[in-house]
Nucleic acid binder design. Sequence first.
DNA 1: CTGTTAGCGCTTTCAT
DNA 2: ATGAAAGCGCTAACAG
Lengths: 351, 351
Amino acid sequence: MTDRKWTLKSIAAHLGVSNATVSNAFNRPDQLSKAKREEILAACHELGYFGPNKAARSLRKGTFNIVALVLPDSVEYMVSDPVASSFMRGVAKVLEPQGINLLLFSGNAESVNDIVDFVDGFICYGRPRNTKLITHLEALSKHVVTVDFELDNKASVNINNHEAAYTVAKQAFTGFETTSDNTSDNIEAAILGLRLLDTELICRVYDHHLPELNTSIAHQRLAGFRQAINELGIVIGDDKTWNIPESSERYARIAAKEALNTSPRPNVLLCMSDLIALAAAREAQAQDIKIPEELKIVGFDGIDEAELFQPAITTIHQNSENKGQQAAELFINKEKQQVMLPFNLKLGQST
Amino acid sequence: MTDRKWTLKSIAAHLGVSNATVSNAFNRPDQLSKAKREEILAACHELGYFGPNKAARSLRKGTFNIVALVLPDSVEYMVSDPVASSFMRGVAKVLEPQGINLLLFSGNAESVNDIVDFVDGFICYGRPRNTKLITHLEALSKHVVTVDFELDNKASVNINNHEAAYTVAKQAFTGFETTSDNTSDNIEAAILGLRLLDTELICRVYDHHLPELNTSIAHQRLAGFRQAINELGIVIGDDKTWNIPESSERYARIAAKEALNTSPRPNVLLCMSDLIALAAAREAQAQDIKIPEELKIVGFDGIDEAELFQPAITTIHQNSENKGQQAAELFINKEKQQVMLPFNLKLGQST
DNA sequence: CTGTTAGCGCTTTCAT
DNA sequence: ATGAAAGCGCTAACAG
C-alpha cells in the first residue's frame, strides 16, 4: 500500500481513463462494461484507493448517510440513562443495516449549525433543553422526526404520557380506596418529578413556578398524576412536588429524603422515572420504612432494574427500543405521520 | 425568514460585497472592519443565512469537528453497557465543550470508508470485532486513539487487565488459604468470561478454542485469573470456563446456571464483568446458595449496581469516565503516547 | 481593508 | 462506452 494519496482524478490519470469512468466504476456499474469495471476496481484496490471521497461526493450530491440524533441534554446524560439507551439501541438497529450512521448531538447546543450540513436529517429524542434548537429544527427543510414531543409539520413518535401517569397513579391509590369510605383522606401523596423546571437544582415545585402551558413529557405526567389525585377528592399540598434535574441515583435520593422527612410523612410516592423510584425505595429501606405497607412507590419506564428490585416497582412500561425503531423507520421512509405508541401498567410489589 | 436558499456567493451578491468579505466576516474577524463585519452578520441573520456551508468548508479545509467513536460491536451493544456508557460520557465531557461532535460507529462494520472522509479522526473503544477495521485504522493517516487495546504507532489508553484480574482473583481465594495448609484443594473455581471467543454462543471455552496469541482484554483477564489459580497450586478443569458473547443479564444468567449445575459445584466464580457477576449472584440466590459462605463471586468494572447489590460484589474498579476523558484529551492534543491508568480492588461482601 | 480567482474531489450532463 | 467540462459552496493566496 503506497503512501501516495489518491484522488479520483489522479487514479484516472494513472490508469489512463477518464474521471467519469472511474466514478462510474464505483457508482454506476451499468455505465461501463463489466470487464472494464472490474479491471478498474481491482487496480484501485491494488493502489490503495478505497473509492471516491465521501465528503466531496456529499457536497456534490447533497446526501450523507448520516443522521443526527438530537438528545434532550448533553450526550453524557443520554448514555447514562437506561431508557434513553434502549431508545438509541432501537434506532441503531434500524439504521445500521441501512448503512446509515448516527451522529449524536447535544440538546444543549446553541444551534444545529455545526452539523446540519453533514447530515440527511434529524431524530430528536425529547424536547431539546435549549429552545433555540427547536426554532432551528422547525425552520429546517431537512427531514425531522421528533420523539416524546411534537413539532408542526414534522413526523413524531409518542406515548400518551398523561394517560399513562394517570393510570399508574390510580394503581398507587387502589389500596386506600377500600379502607376508607369515599374520600380517601388517609392518603399522603408526594410527587418526585424529573425536569419539571429548567434548573439544575433539586427543589420543590410550587405552582407559580410552572409555566402556563408546557407540553413536555414531565408536565404531561404531572397532569396525569394530578388528575388521579383530584378524582379521589384528596388534596396534595403545594409543597409536595419535587424537581429533580436529571435522572441520577444521587439526586433522586436527595429528593426522596427530603420528601420522606416531611410531616405528615407521605405514604405514596409518585415518581416520574424508575430510576427515581428505585432511589426512593432504597432511601425508604435505609430508613426502615416498609414498602408497600407504609409507603407505596410507583415509577415510570419499565426498566429491568425496577423489575429485579425487591420489591419490584409498579410502573408504566414503555418499549423504548420499539420507539427507537419506529422513529428510525419514520425517518427512513420520510413519512410525516404522528405515531402514538401503547404503554402498559406493570404491577410490582411496591403498591 | 425567507425560503430562498442562500449561499455565501448569493449573499455576497445580494449585499453588494465580495465572497471573501462574507467569508471573512464569519471566519476571520481581523480581516475587515468591525462595523462592516457586524453589518454583514446582521444582514445574514436577517436574511436567514446561518453561515458558510460546513460540508463545503470541510472539503476545502479538511477539518470536520467530528470524531468517530468506534465501538467494539454494534452501536446497540454500546449503549446497553454501563461501563461503555461511562466511557462515552467521559469522552463527550471533553469533546463537547470543544465543539467537537461524536459520530458513533459500529465495530461490526466492514470498513471505515463510509465515514472516514467526514471525521477528523477516531477513538476506538476496545478492539473492533471486525478485524478488517483494525487493518484499516492502522493504515490511516488520520489521528487514532485506541482504548483497551493497542495499535502500532497510535496513541492508547489502557489499564493493566492482567494484573487487575490477578488481583481480584487472589482476593476471591483469600478465605480459603487459611483453612487449608498450603495447597487449597477445597477450592472449586469457575470462570465466566466475556467475549473470549468470536461467537454468538454461550459455551464452554476449552483451551484448544483459544487462539495462540490474543491480546484482547478478555484474554488478558483470563491470563490474570489463571495466574492466581496456578499460584495456589490448584487445578481448574478445562471445562470450567465459559464464554458469554455479550454483557447482558440474560446470557450471563444462563452461563451462571450452567456453571452452578456442574459437579462438584464451584465455590468461586471469577466473572469478567460486574454485569455477569450480578447475574451469577442472582442465579445463586435463586438456587438458595449462600454468598459468600457457599459461593464467592468477584466481578470486574466497579459499576454502581454492583455496589448497591446485596451482597455488594467484590470487584476491580476502573474509572471508565476518566478513561474516556483521557482518550479524548489524547485525541485533542494529537499526542501519540500510551497511557496506562490505575485500577483498584473494591471489597464487597461477595468474598 | 476588499475583490478576484484557483482549487478541495467529486458527479453528471452532454457530446463524441 | 468514454471523455470534457461545469459546478456543488467554500477558503486562502494574492493583488489591488
